[in-house]
Amino acid sequence: MQQVASAPPAHPPTHVEEPSTGLNNRKVLMWAFLGSDCMFFGALIVSYLVYRGRWQGHPVPTDVFDIPYTSVSAFALLMSSLAMVLALAAIQRGDIRRLKIWLLTTAGLGLVFIGGQIFEFTTFGHEGLTLGGNTGGTTFFVLTGFHGAHVSLGIAWLLSLFVQAVRGQMAQARSLDVEIAGLYWHFVDIVWIIIFTVVYLIPI
């Protein structure tokens, strides 16, 4: 852990003057990005809702949904948010060992979700719900697929933080890096709560 001794200061030397608001630039950037991503998912969800119940032919999404199965993977994703919070709390205390544990747990629960989604897509495909079959398949696969892509990106991000922690490059002073990754991760979770409710749970 000799690298920790030479850990960078909380504010790395950059050309940046003291920020006008006292917030960190990267954190503001992440909030702006999440605002933008709201509109991204908003447009995808609206595309689904526009056709909901007006699907032609069978199967349509509601024919093939397995709500208990998807509830389990949704639960895994929700629990990953808890692990993410614990990872952030760990690095803010300077507890790098627990940081590693909770980062890995978060990414692992994310992988459970992604694995569940791959299995679900495959099963739906076998049951006849396809991307080009009807507007139900089209809007369902593209909406949930892009959410899955967001989760996958988050997993890669968490794992890169984990690798840095293993290599001794994480220190208390870098808690902001974990916090920003956490903002993204929680956002992706919240989006899933909306998708799960709107797409799966609310009956037509």
């Binding site: 702006a32 991204f40 447009a43 995808l44 595309s47 991307l131 080009g132 089209t138 809007t139 593209v142």
Partner: peptide, 25 residues
């Protein structure tokens, strides 16, 4: 830009899926 461009991004993705992968948006 932050709030409007994601919407055209989705529209273009949907159009691209229609043209390349046979979806039916």
């Amino acid at each position: 830009i932050v709030l409007a461009f994601p919407v055209i991004a989705v529209a273009l993705i949907e159009l691209m899926f229609d043209r390349l992968f046979g979806s039916t948006f």
